[in-house]
Amino acid sequence: MTTTELVASLSDSTSPSRRYKDTLFLTVLWVSLLLALLTLATLVINTLISGASSLSWNFIAFFPSPFPEDSGIQSALFGSLWVTLTSGFVSLSVALGTAIYLEEFTNPNSRLQRFITVNIQTLAGVPSIVYGILGLAFVVRGPLSWGFTVGSAAATLTMMVLPLMIVATREALKAVPPSLREGSYALGATRWQTVYRQVLPAARPGIATGSILGVSRALGESAPLILLGALAYVSYNPTGFDSDFTVLPLMIFKWATEVQDEYRGLAAAAIVVLLLLLFALNAVAIIIRDRSRIRW
């Protein structure tokens, strides 16, 4: 609509059809909003109803079993803990290094920085299943041949969350005002001293929030692990990086595909646990974000 058309339509300001259209438009917006809210509500309520009967302390403490009555998720919980913490720790370290290098040690207009930035944006848009292919070809089989172990799953998920982590940590570093750095330089500090003593502490809340979001992505991811070769039955906690394992999303996937109603209950109960873990992580991120809202 050009400006003249707009003005022309406005001249007819009291027409009932206009008001009618306004109401209709607002209704459409409400419907869109309701779609999102209803989805969330139905999903949560539906899961809670089917999972309620299976949720108990035993469900968390027991190991998977061929019999649904005494199945539990302990090994999946510990498997998720191992895989998520490992990939979170490794990807955070690498992301921090990359972000510091790009933000503090390279010129923002340099070709190198633009190249790496575009590269990371590209990686962030790669579907997770493609990381599964990478893991399958390089880690599980091929050069590394680690098999389907904690180590190979952690390596695959590390590669997957790394781009997100880098973007988040870079944003956190960017948010630290230049004046802080310049003050440090003025006092005679080197670049690394400035980064280590001034920039990183100031950026800590941002980094923490970003890495929590990255970790929650790794915690909920299933697709690449399905491709790596999900095991049907692992009834013990991981013992090391070369150990067999299962994780919560794989457990849910496995149970979701079963046809008997008992398994549907188990899947729903495991979903409740997974969602609670994710909400807790998100809540921590939000608290950190709100508490540390420093105005520079």
Binding site: A36, T39, L40, T42, L43, N46, T47, S50, L213, S216, L219, G220, E221, S222, A223, P249, I252, F253, A256, R264, A267, A268, I271, L274, L275, L278, F279, N282
Partner: peptide, 18 residues
Amino acid sequence: EVLAGVPTVVFGFFALVF
């Protein structure tokens, strides 16, 4: 944000049963 953070396997289960 919460809705965006729901894992896809949960949506998959939702698709299957609902």
